[in-house]
Every structure is written in C-alpha cells, then in structure tokens.
Design a protein around this nucleic acid. Structure first.
Length: 589
RNA sequence: GCACCCGUAGCUCAGCUGGAUAGAGCGCUGCCCUCCGAAGGCAGAGGCCAGGGGUUCGAAUCCCUUCGGGUGCGCCA
C-alpha cells in the first residue's frame, strides 16, 4: 500500500468530478501534480500541490489556487481516514491522517512482509547492462562500483514491477584481446622453461601465469617458437575464457549474477550471410542515416597521425549528437561503435522498452552517440539511460592506496571484498550518488561506530531483533508472529517518536517507486540510514523516559502494539538491505 | 577550442525530477548509562546553495552566461 499514490488517485477523482460538473476545464494533465511528504512534520502527513500546478488553467473558475484547494480539501476531509485537510501557503493542501491510517500501514507491512512496497507488474521490459569489464584481467574497485550499482538498480526495478534482464557485454573483440593473447603466450613459454621479459604494452600481471601453465599442460611444446598466426586464436580464446571465469567468480563474491553474458565477437559472425553488425548497419542505411563523408579534425590539439579521409559515417547529429560518427576504421574493419550499435539493436529487437547502460565516467563522451543510435534504431520508441559511475578513491585511514593497472600491481576488487566483506563494499558503493566521486576507506567501513553507515544501519536491525528477544523473556507465551502483531491494538501508539517512525514506514513504498523511476538506488540506502537514525533516537528516548520503552512488563497490550511497530521497522530494514544486496544481521556480537 | 559531469555548513555529502523556515554525519561547545545493546542519543554554534541574469504563484533544482574542478574529443574498448 502506498498512501501517496492512493491519495493521488483520490484527488484525481475529485478533480474529474469537478470537471464533470463543469466547475473545472477539461484536459487537465493529472500527471503534473504530486502528493508528497511535507518537509516539516507540523504540516501534516501528506501534502498536495494540485491547486497551484493548475493555477493557470483554473483562472476562469476560481479566483486563486487557494479557492480550489479549499474545495478539494473539503472533499478530502469527508473521507473516513482523514483527520483534517487544510489549505496553507499559496495553495498547498495539507492532509493529516487519523491514527487508523497508520495502523493500516503497519498491518500491511507485517502481513506483506518482504513484499511490502513492491509493485504489481507494470508490463515494462527493462534491460540493465552493467560491469562489462574487459576480459583482460581481474576487476578493480571502479568496476565494483558499477557492478553493485547495476545489480541494486536491477533489483529495485524488478521489485517495482518491471521484467528485468541483467546483462554483461563481453568485449572479446578488437585489439586488446590480441594483446591479452600475446601476454598469455609469453606465460605459456615461461611455463615451458623459457626466460621471458614482458614488453611495454602487454599485460604484466601474474594472473596470466596459471593461464600459461594450463596451456603448457594441455598443448605441450606445440606452439613454442611458432608464428602468431598459429597460436593467437586458440591462446586468445583460452585466455578470454580464463579471464571471464575469474571475473564471474569475482562477481559471485559480491553476490552478483547476470542472466546474459553477451559476446561482442558474436556480433561479427555471419548467420545466413549476414552478421548482426551488417543487419544493424543495413537498418540505418534503409533509414537514410549512413553516408560517406569527411569529418573536421578535432579542435585544439591535432592528433599526430591525423589524416583527412572519406569514411562511413552515421548521421548521429540528427539525434542530438555533436558530430557524425565513423563506423569503419581505416583498415576497413568496423569500429567499436558499430559493434555497439549492433548490440543495442539486438536488445531493441528483443522487445525491451527501456535500456539502462552502466558505464564508468570516463566513457561520458560516448553517451550522446549511443543514445542517438538507440533513438534512430528504435524510431525513438526505446529509451536509453546511461548511468555513469564516477571513480572510486581507495584509501586506508585517509591515506590513498595506489592503483596502477599498467604495472600489474593494483588492488583488485576481490582483495577488497576479501578484506572488508561484501556488505561493506556493497553498502558503501551505494551510499553515494552514482555521478559523485566516492572515497572508500578500508579502515572506516570496518569500524563499529555510527560513523560507519553500514554498521549503523545493520546495528539498528540487530537492535530491533534484540527487543524481540527481550519481549520473549518479559512475557510468557507471547506470540510475536507478524499475524499476531497485526492484531494488536495499534491505536495505542500515540507518542510523537512512534508517529514519526510510522510516517517514515509509510513513505517506504513511495521511496522505492521514485528511486526505481529515477534509476537511483542510493536513495534507498539513504532512506534506510534515516530510518535507522529515527529508530536509534526513539530507542534512546526510552532510556530517558521508561514509559516509552518498547517492552513494558506491566502493559502487555501496549507492548504488543509497540512490538508491531518494531516488527515493521525490522521488516523494512531487512527488505531494504536485501534489495541492496546487504545482509541484515540478527545480532552484531 | 567543443561536449558531458560536478560546485550546498570548516570537512565529507543528502536534498524525494519546481514546493513551504535548505538537512545529516564528522569536527567544535555543553549534556544523557543502578534502566529494552552508550557499538547509541539530546542540545547549541555554523549558509549570498560558486557569481550574475532569466522563466513563474514558487528556483539549490529548469534556461542563458561567467568563474572554478573533473572526464573525454577519427583509425582504444
């Protein structure tokens, strides 16, 4: 149950009724107004801006927005769960609910359990593509951020009613996997007793040592001293398989599992004479969006090897890009962009309504052309949202931890997960907007203090659980099942702290919905932190004022009502953490 | 030179796609444990939302512009 969308519907009906009575003009866009929690709790439980939003449309019917607001407020006040609806400021309608409304929220929370806040299927097919690290080495912490972000976003979207596919795009074509093959070949030679030195430009990391050893084991001296043309392909394929195995295992350590691993190279393999790239290019060609032409050289620093030449271009400027983009390299092969067009065309052809790509911020310059391509391929029917994740600064006690992939001596994602645990990694990665840089302190995330948000939220959950343990000791034969708690007399919850907590719980379904719509899982992380904070505060209120404690041995009925509140909080904390992929411990000892 | 992201308390950051008197943590000052987990909480001080224009009932949020930081800019992916 979502109080906010519920009232949005009710107010929409009131407006429609007024339109029917010719007391408002037809054609009002109901999507324009909103029902939201007021910033200031003294303004009530719900607030609606509808009268102000329609200020311009209603001039012939009402002198000012306040008049319309008064009219709507009058209708709202008649409803059984509304205590009062008053007009404030320029025309806000502030609604205060009867305690029974919040009792309904608690009951819904207890009865629906982990499904509280979930939405019915909305019929949307969404594809979330994330991680997509090149299969040339282990993942680093930056990849981890995109991985956790994409995974949490996918969960959030699924929870709010979309049919979600989690997808990984394997960049197994192009020059870099050849570099990988050469690097692995050297390790193969090394495994056979040759002395090797790794030239500049190859991957020096020792993660390729076992790959070389395995090749030596399976193929003996067969490729030793032979030209690249003999061994490149088999070594490359073996190395990519090994790297993808390693990446999958790194992802598994973070509880991340994709449904689809899509190979870039497969896009170039013809079926019935045509590859996916051919098909996509043909499609654009048919739309008249491909031409042969010249590009002006980039302003500022001219590249050393710049050569002005005729090339095959996609008319991306027709869809908001700055320049048209080349589809073929000078050697005639397709650019990465061409493959990516084909890849996204596959996704469009699969019937997805929304495509979400999670990329590193260093690919920001690529967004416009990809959005242009999706727009062109789908005739503007499919939306592409590219989420850029800013880089992660790894520090320990404030001092930077060096990372350098070139030297092969970098801190891998796996090392960080092994050191601090997946809960800490996942929560911290989500406790920041995706487009803001993130400082990840290896020492701080293990601290057991309120400075560490992971601990703070998990502690709230453990603390809530401890109240239940306490209640079992205090009362004989007490039934603390959700069903039993839902039957408690919830009107006994009258304290301001209790009301504040219930108000927060009532906002959870809306928060989920909005975070999913905005593709911003961090909002959920911050909400859980807020809920934990309110809970800790109310707990402490019980220290100063014993009559506020959740467990009151003299008053079983009151205790049951309060335990229903605690149970709801526990439920939302656990479910919210679960959506983020973080565990909710029963105790912190 | 151009494009994209960012600029909010001394520091690190939220701000719910335009709402009411801009919030939290750290740090600083002063408090709260014979009592459900003090691994926590309460109170106080601290702001020209980088600057300037505009859009409207209403702007930290949208548009333009200046300044400052980051990321990119055919034949890497």
């Amino acid at each position: 149950m979502n109080l906010f969308s519920d009232f949005q519907t009710r107010i929409t009906h009131i407006i429609e009724k007024l339109v029917g009575e010719k007391r408002l003009p037809p054609g009002l866009d109901m999507a324009k107004f909103g029902v939201e929690p007021p910033r200031d709790a003294s303004h009530g439980d719900l607030s609606c801006n509808v009268a102000m939003v329609f200020a311009r449309d209603i001039k012939e019917f009402y002198a000012n927005p306040r008049q319309l607001a008064t009219e709507i407020g009058f209708e709202l006040a008649k409803m059984p769960d509304v205590a009062e609806a008053e007009v404030a400021g320029p025309g806000f309608i502030n609604i205060r609910l009867k305690p029974s409304a919040f009792a309904d929220v608690l009951r819904a929370c207890l009865e629906q359990g982990p499904q509280f806040g979930a939405s019915q299927s909305n019929g949307l097919k969404v594809n979330v593509e994330y991680v997509s690290a090149n299969p040339t080495g282990p993942m680093h912490v930056g990849h981890g951020r995109g991985a956790v972000f994409g995974d949490a976003l996918a969960s959030l979207l699924a929870f709010s009613g979309a049919a979600v596919t989690r997808e990984y795009y394997i960049n197994d074509a192009g020059a870099q996997v050849d570099v990988l093959a050469r690097s692995a070949y050297l390790r193969y030679c090394e495994a056979l007793g040759e002395t090797i030195s790794i030239p500049e430009g190859l991957y020096p990391g020792d993660y390729l040592v076992p790959v070389g050893a395995a090749l030596a084991q399976s193929h003996g001296r067969e490729w030793l001293g032979k030209p690249e043309s003999v061994w490149l392909v088999p070594v490359r394929d073996a190395a990519i398989d090994a790297m993808m195995g390693m990446i999958r295992s790194d992802l598994a350590a973070l509880n991340i599992r994709h449904e689809v691993f899509f190979s870039e190279r497969s896009l170039h393999i013809p079926h019935n004479g045509k590859s996916d790239v051919d098909i996509a290019i043909d499609l654009l060609q048919a739309k008249g969006l491909i031409y042969e032409g010249r590009l002006p050289p980039p302003k500022g620093q001219l590249p050393e090897d710049w050569e002005d030449r005729e090339q095959t271009l996609f008319k991306s400027t027709g869809f908001g890009d700055d320049v048209d983009r080349p589809l073929k390299k000078s050697d005639g092969s397709f650019t990465y962009f061409a493959s990516d067009i084909a890849y996204h065309n596959r996704k469009i052809a699969s019937g997805f309504d929304i495509l979400v790509d999670v990329w590193g911020a260093d690919h920001g310059g690529y967004v416009k052309r990809m959005a242009a391509a999706v727009s062109a391929l789908s005739d503007k029917k499919v939306e592409l949202d590219v989420k850029l994740c800013q880089l992660v600064k790894l520090v320990r006690d404030g001092a930077p931890v060096k990372m350098s992939k070139r030297s092969g001596d970098f801190v891998t994602l796996r090392e960080v997960v092994d050191e601090v645990g997946l809960d800490a990694v996942r929560f911290m990665m989500l406790f920041r907007k995706n487009d803001a840089p993130l400082e990840f302190d290896l020492a701080k995330v293990l601290e057991q203090s309120k400075e560490n948000p992971v601990f703070y939220v998990q502690y709230a959950h453990a603390r809530a659980k401890s109240i239940f343990r306490q209640a079992v000791k205090a009362f004989e034969n007490i039934d603390l099942s959700p069903k039993s708690l839902a039957n408690a007399d919830l009107t006994l919850l009258k304290d301001a702290g209790e009301a504040g907590l219930m108000r927060l719980l009532a906002q959870y379904p809306r928060l989920i919905e909005q975070a999913a719509k905005a593709h911003e899982p961090h909002r959920l992380a911050f909400f859980l932190h807020d809920l934990a904070s309110a809970f800790h505060a109310h707990w402490n209120a019980g220290k100063d004022s014993p009559q506020l404690r959740f467990v009151n041995e003299e008053n079983r009925e009151l205790s049951l009502a309060r335990l229903a509140l605690v149970g709801s909080i526990t439920q939302v904390l656990a479910a919210g953490l679960d959506l983020l992929g973080v565990s909710a411990p029963v105790e912190m000892r």
